[in-house]
C-alpha cells in the first residue's frame, strides 16, 4: 500500500494552508527524513495527502534582521550550517545541527521538521531553546510569534494543529560578551539519538555569569529548560563552588529516566554533570572571542 496517495508541492504559504485545510488525512512534510520513515515503518498513522513545504519562499528565509537571525523552517540544515551568521551568532545551533543525521540527510532535513517532530532530545530544538528562539507559526487565521516550548504537547507530539505551519525561527543573535555552546553524548550501539544533550547560552560580565539559559534533553516529555540551575549560576563566578552547586541543582530539577538498551537514568544523571561543566566552560571561553575573528573548528563529529 502506498504510504501516500497525493503529493502536493505548493509554492506559497496560503496555498499550503488551504491544501492542509481542504484535504482529509493530510500532513505537512518538510524534509521528511523522520516522517517518511515513520510512515514506511507503520509508526505514524496513515496519511492520504502530503503537503511538501520545501518550495515555499517564505520558509526559505535566511537573514539577519534587528539583532536576530531569521531561519526559514524549510531551509536544509546544511545551508543553515554554511550560513556564517549562525556560526558566529548562534554557535550552539550550528554545532547542534551539524550533528543531526549525516551529510545526505542534512541536505534535506530542516529545523522546522526537527521541532515539529517534537522529540524531547532533538539536537536542533535543544539549541533553539537555549538560544531563546521564537517560532513564527502560520495558520489560516494569520501568523504569530510564539515561544519554542509552545510548539510541544508531549514526547513526539506537537502542539501545532494540522493546518499550522512553522514558517521560521527567530533566534536572538549573540552580542558582545554573549556566547553559546552545544554538546551531546552518544552511545555507539543502537539508535543514533543522543543519550543526552545540552545547549547553553550565557552573558558574561567580567568574571561573572550575568545571565544564562540551559536546555537539556531528554528530561521529561519536551525539551527542558533548567531554570533552577540557571538561577544558581546567575551572577556567580565560574568557580568550583558554583559549579558543584549548579550540578547538584541540575540533578535535582532534571528528570532523567532509563531508556532500555540506551542509557540508565543513573548514567544520565552522571552525564548531566559532565555536560554542564564542559558546555558551560566552552560557552564561557567563547564570550572572549571577537566575532570578527575566526571561531576555530567547531566540533562536528558524531
Amino acid at each position: 500500500m502506498a504510504i501516500w496517495t497525493h503529493y502536493y508541492i505548493p509554492q506559497t504559504l496560503d496555498e499550503a494552508l488551504s491544501l492542509l485545510c481542504r484535504e482529509p488525512q493530510s500532513k505537512a512534510i518538510a524534509g521528511g527524513t523522520d516522517l517518511l520513515l515513520e510512515l514506511q515503518q507503520g509508526r505514524h498513522p496513515p496519511v492520504r495527502t502530503l503537503v511538501d513545504l520545501s518550495q515555499i519562499a517564505a520558509l526559505q528565509r535566511l537573514e539577519m534582521s534587528q539583532g536576530a537571525l531569521w531561519i526559514g523552517a524549510s531551509v536544509p540544515l546544511n545551508r543553515v550550517i554554511a550560513w556564517p551568521p549562525v556560526r558566529h551568532f548562534a554557535t550552539a545551533l550550528c554545532e547542534a545541527i551539524s550533528l543531526i543525521g549525516g551529510p545526505q540527510v542534512r541536505n534535506v532535513a530542516t529545523l522546522g521538521g526537527n521541532v515539529a517532530h517534537a522529540l524531547p532530545a532533538a539536537d536542533g530544538a535543544i539549541a533553539l531553546l537555549a538560544l531563546d528562539a521564537q517560532v513564527l507559526v502560520a495558520s489560516p487565521e494569520g501568523q504569530r510569534l510564539q515561544p519554542l516550548l509552545a510548539c510541544y504537547a508531549g514526547p513526539g507530539k506537537t502542539a501545532l494543529q494540522r493546518a499550522e505551519i512553522i514558517v521560521a525561527f527567530q533566534v536572538p543573535a549573540c552580542e558582545k560578551e554573549e556566547a553559546s555552546a552545544f554538546r551531546r553524548v552518544m552511545r555507539p550501539q543502537g539508535v543514533a539519538i543522543a543519550i543526552e544533550n545540552m545547549g547553553i547560552w550565557l552573558r558574561r560580565k567580567d568574571e561573572r555569569i550575568e545571565d544564562i539559559r540551559i536546555a537539556v534533553g531528554p528530561s521529561g516529555p519536551m525539551p527542558f529548560r533548567a531554570r533552577q540551575t540557571e538561577q544558581v549560576l546567575r551572577g556567580k563566578p565560574l568557580d568550583e563552588e558554583t559549579l558543584a552547586e549548579a550540578e547538584k541543582v541540575l540533578k535535582s530539577e532534571a528528570r532523567f529516566r532509563t531508556s532500555p538498551h540506551r542509557a540508565t537514568a543513573e548514567y544520565r544523571y552522571h552525564l548531566a554533570g559532565v555536560l554542564l561543566r564542559q558546555t558551560l566552560q566552552t560557552a564561557w571561553e567563547r564570550t572572549q572571542l571577537n566575532f570578527a575573528e575566526e571561531l576555530g573548528p567547531l566540533s562536528v563529529k558524531g
Binding site: G32, L36, Q40, D52, Q104, N107
Partner: peptide, 22 residues
C-alpha cells in the same frame, strides 16, 4: 531507512538519499 547511503544521488548538485526522497 536513510541509514546506509547506498542510494545516494545528486539532486541539483547536492547528495541526497533517494530511498527516502519522494
Amino acid at each position: 531507512e536513510a541509514e546506509c547511503g547506498a542510494c545516494t544521488v545528486l539532486v541539483d548538485g547536492e547528495p541526497i538519499l533517494s530511498c527516502t526522497y519522494p
